[in-house]
């Protein structure tokens, strides 16, 4: 079994089927992109995998273990970290404390909640250094500009030391230059043995860094494969540009 597998994963919101029988397979070590037009069900898929939502049908296996229905923090401890499309730092905590909250996840229940966390600071600083936030460690996270808040989200996810990292539109709202930095950062994270799944709107970014791409439309997988294959798939072009555009594009 691969690192992450979903089987017939389905989520209904009232009459709307947001995710429709999705079989997603993520292999260890790959950068896997999930793309699709607005409302295709990408974020819902992430919410299902991370336990924010319970699937209506289907199963999710991570490291050969069934994880659907587990609470979010349990899934985190098993090794899945995520970032959010809309960045949500703990605005009144410092940048360093934001990372420390995440770093503490493996201790909260074990070594005694009332133990001081002072010795974790060094490790948290190293993480901040690797994402280029070391010099801002002590300012409130809410005062960071948006590009750096995204880096903080990734730093927080890194502090969880996951095997699988889910990035929800990490490039949204970033300048071209910042995107360059982000690519390089994702590359470094993967180099440490982390598998990455990212949801993205910007095709160019996904085409550049992903090895495998899954395309969703109306909650369904309409294509999957290497970036070049997917980019030339008529169904994908149609989903993105609308019916009738296949001929025009072809």
């Amino acid at each position: 079994m691969e690192l992450l597998e979903t089987e017939g994963l389905t989520k209904d919101f009232g009459g709307l089927r947001a995710v429709d029988h999705v079989d997603l397979v993520v292999r260890r070590g790959e950068i896997h992109g999930v793309i699709g037009p607005n409302g295709a069900g990408k974020t819902t898929l992430f919410n299902l995998i991370t336990g924010y939502l319970r699937p209506t049908y289907g199963a999710i296996h991570f490291k050969e273990r069934r994880i659907d229905g587990l609470p979010t923090h349990r899934i985190v401890t098993l090794g899945i970290a995520r970032t959010f499309q809309i960045v949500r730092p703990f605005t009144e905590l410092s940048v360093l404390e934001n990372v420390l909250v995440a770093w503490g996840h493996r201790y909260y229940r074990k070594t005694g909640p009332f133990r001081p966390y002072a010795n974790a600071r060094r490790r948290a600083r190293e993480i901040l250094e690797s994402v280029g936030l070391a010099d801002r460690a002590d300012i409130p996270a809410g005062t960071l500009p948006i590009g750096l808040q995204r880096r903080l989200e990734i730093a927080r996810a890194m502090a969880l030391e996951p095997e699988l990292m889910l990035l929800d539109e990490p490039a949204a709202g970033l300048t071209e230059e910042e995107i360059g930095g982000l690519k390089e950062l994702v590359g470094r994270i993967v180099a440490t043995g982390v598998t990455v799944v990212l949801v993205e709107h910007r095709m160019s970014f996904v085409m550049d860094i992903c090895e495998v791409i899954t395309v969703l439309d109306h909650g369904r997988v309409i294509a999957e494969g290497a970036p070049e294959e997917v980019a030339h798939d008529p169904a994908v072009i149609e989903a993105y540009l609308g019916t009738g555009s296949v001929n025009a594009a072809g």
Binding site: P71, H73, R88, G104, Y107, P113, F114, R115, A157
Partner: peptide, 28 residues
């Protein structure tokens, strides 16, 4: 100065985010 204190601060700012970074919210 303690982990649970930090976890509480995180929870009070954003409960569901706290869960996403591994804080066992019920326990906290």
């Amino acid at each position: 100065k303690t982990r649970v204190g930090l976890a509480w601060q995180a929870c009070s700012q954003d409960l569901s985010m706290a869960g996403a970074v591994g804080v066992p919210v019920d326990w906290a």
